[in-house]
Amino acid sequence: MEISNLTKNRIKEYLNKGTRFDGRELTEFRDISIETGISNKAEGSARVKIGKTEVLAGVKMSISEPYADGPEDGTMMVTVELLPLSSPNYELGPPKFKAIELGRITDRGIRHSGFIDFKKLCIEEGKKVWTIFIDIYSINDNGNLVDASAIAAVAALRDAKIPVINEETGRVKFGEWTEERLPLVMEKNPINITFSKIGNSIIIDPISEEEDSAESRVSIGLITYDKKVMISSIQNGEPTEFGIDELGKIFDKAEEMYLKLGKDVNNKIEEAIKRNNKK
């Protein structure tokens, strides 16, 4: 939804003074909370809140034929649905561009991070592999669904257990799980950080009003590889003109944020899974 110019101008005035409506610094995240195991029919699931923004993610798995160009590779599909229950701006109907884009950014963030070891998802070369469906739903949109979706996807993947295969039919036995977790490369610890440009300021983790005031944005997916912080995906959004130096500063900031945020998110997912195991 378009917000009033009045609000936009006020947001810019605040940013020029280095503050925001909710008192945060320009590059400060809101509080993140993570729960796992929120739906017991799913192979894995998670609820992620960033401030008032909330998303749910669920992992379901099935057995299917691999693609021709990867006969030994499991497959993955990410979809994002923007539920009408999560905002007055969303309507029923086939996915609109925003949902498609969110799904694609989240998909690539996970896929290219190397977080999932797809080779280990092969059951029978060229014939049978695991397919992982990651479905993400918005429950309350108060900005930055993109970073929330990425965290939720990672948390749900880490929560997931591989289902039991029915030996006779060769299909999944629904409702029965092995003790085996997904083949994930934990050290990679993928995180997505989105930078929004409003006037001359660059901020992270925007609330809805800030998101609507932003002229453009760039989402950066980061991982740890070979003990170094690496950028594993980038996507910009909306018409924009970034200076080369300006981008350089964003890459550096992303690295700095990753070191902090990556650890925080990782701990929170671990705690959530531990809490869940005790239940």
Partner: peptide
């Protein structure tokens, strides 16, 4: 000019 209009990346690279 040195303005970047679009940037997409898949893979892994240091900043």
């Amino acid at each position: 000019s040195d303005k970047v209009l679009a940037l997409q990346l898949d893979g892994k690279i240091t900043p």
